[in-house]
Deep mutational scan, measured.
Amino acid sequence: LADYWKCTSCNEMNPPLPSHCNRCWALRE
């Protein structure tokens, strides 16, 4: 979970790649 990032649109936790959210497809900010 070290490099995971949280989507600013839906708060889904996503892996470093790809740089878009797996749930709502918003790009990582």
Rank of each mutant, 00 (worst) to 15 (best):
A26E: 13
C21G: 02
N11F: 05
L17G: 13
E29P: 15
H20C: 01
S19G: 07
T8L: 09
C21V: 01
W25G: 15
S19I: 11
P18H: 07
W25P: 08
C24Q: 00
W25M: 15
C24H: 01
E29A: 07
L27S: 13
P15T: 04
L27D: 11
C10P: 02
L17H: 08
P15G: 10
P15A: 06
P16W: 02
S19D: 14
R28A: 08
H20L: 09
R28S: 06
R28Q: 12
R28T: 04
W25A: 15
S19V: 08
R23N: 06
N22W: 13
P16R: 04
L17I: 11
L17P: 04
R23G: 10
C7Y: 01
S19L: 08
A26M: 08
P15R: 05
N22K: 13
C24S: 00
C7G: 03
P15M: 05
C21K: 02
L1N: 11
Y4L: 15
P18G: 14
Y4F: 10
A26L: 07
E29W: 03
A2N: 13
N22Y: 09
W25H: 15
N11L: 10
W5A: 04
C24V: 00
N22G: 14
L17N: 15
S19N: 09
L17A: 14
P16E: 02
Y4R: 00
C7L: 01
R23A: 11
C21I: 01
K6G: 06
H20P: 15
K6F: 06
A26R: 11
H20D: 03
N11Y: 11
R28C: 12
R23M: 06
C24L: 00
C21F: 01
P15Q: 04
R23L: 04
E12C: 04
A26W: 04
W25E: 13
N14L: 03
H20Q: 13
L27W: 07
S9Y: 08
A2V: 09
C21T: 02
S19P: 11
P16I: 01
N22T: 12
L27C: 03
C21P: 01
L27K: 13
E29V: 09
R23E: 12
P18M: 14
R28P: 10
H20F: 08
P16L: 03
C24E: 01
L1I: 14
W25I: 08
C21E: 02
W25S: 15
S19Q: 13
P15E: 04
S19T: 10
D3L: 04
C24I: 03
R28L: 03
W25L: 14
E29L: 08
R23I: 02
P18V: 13
N22H: 07
T8Q: 07
A2K: 14
H20K: 12
W5S: 07
A26K: 06
L27M: 07
P16F: 01
W5C: 08
P16H: 04
E12F: 05
R28K: 10
N22R: 13
L17V: 09
P15L: 00
P16M: 01
A2R: 15
P18T: 12
L27H: 05
R23D: 14
A2W: 08
H20G: 08
C7S: 07
W25N: 15
A26P: 05
L27E: 12
L27F: 05
R28I: 03
R23H: 05
P18S: 13
S19F: 15
C24M: 00
C21Q: 03
H20V: 06
A26S: 07
A2F: 03
